[in-house]
Design a protein around this nucleic acid. Structure first.
Lengths: 148, 148
DNA sequence: TATTGTTATACTCTATAACTATA
DNA sequence: TATAGTTATAGAGTATAACAATA
């Protein structure tokens, strides 16, 4: 029973540290106005659309663990900024399929080259290649937690 | 130059994934109403006070990368809930030193036993001991990013 | 009846600005 | 003048509730 007690303590300590560092990262990242004047959520949406291709508001909301109404607000902002455009689904009239605009794609590439993202800059400045690998594999674990 | 290009791409991809998973974790964790009806920030404060001992509002704000006014609001909520109490600093009349109340300490212990924390439960359910160790060491890397 | 999406509204968390009090 | 803390206000982000349109 000592073993499982130790395990329980480890999980508890991990939760404590994880919560603290996640909150802190979020505040730090937001205050730096990462890219353009987009929010973290909006950037995540763009990245997801770029990586996984077109999707609907509902699908994006599910993927990001967000309510469709909240995702709708993010999509509206991205659409107003000309970064995302919607087209009616060919067979299902309820759905609107969202894609990145060409302007968005070129903007993403140029902002990557310009290294405007605080998080990217900080990762490069603070972490060596081995640590980046280590963190990258830990991201998979975090994703398991977030998706559970 | 190919090497540094690959590095840059890795950092960029890591930033992308990190941002997405941090946001998702934050939403998931909040929607579960983790402990009592405290917010994530308030929990972080309690944990910090428990681990590092009494502190002032300003010190806590610096430690959590938050404005003193924002931290003040969190402290006010914790004080109203009877979880934190303030005492005047013995020599510096401007400062108020904050400590956990006895009620808070016993509440922390009981809620730990009851395993009410979604994040703790999820870590135990989703991660094996080796993975918990892996994630724990990655937390150190995240903290470097957040503190930089 | 279920699902997609929208509109309206409210709440939570944090930030900025302006102030008082002590050092 | 600088620092600790408070109060007032505003903004961003997300949630709940109610609705229209399509399946």
């Amino acid at each position: 029973m000592i073993g499982s007690d130790t395990e329980a303590l480890r999980a508890s300590a991990l939760a404590v540290d994880l919560r603290a560092v996640v909150g802190k990262l979020k505040r730090r990242s937001r205050e730096q106005a990462p890219l353009g004047d987009l929010t973290e959520s909006q950037i995540s949406v763009l990245v997801r659309l770029e990586r996984d291709g077109p999707a609907t508001v509902s699908a994006l909301a599910r993927a990001e663990a967000m309510r469709p109404q909240s995702m709708g607000a993010n999509i509206a902002a991205l659409t107003a900024a000309g970064l995302v455009s919607g087209a009616p689904h060919p067979t299902d009239g309820r759905q609107t399929v969202l894609s990145l605009t060409d302007a968005c794609r070129s903007w993403i590439m140029s902002s990557r080259e310009a290294r405007q993202d605080w998080l990217v800059r900080t990762i490069k400045a603070q972490l060596d290649p081995a640590e980046i690998d280590q963190l990258a594999s830990a991201i998979g674990l975090l994703r398991r937690l977030a998706d559970s």
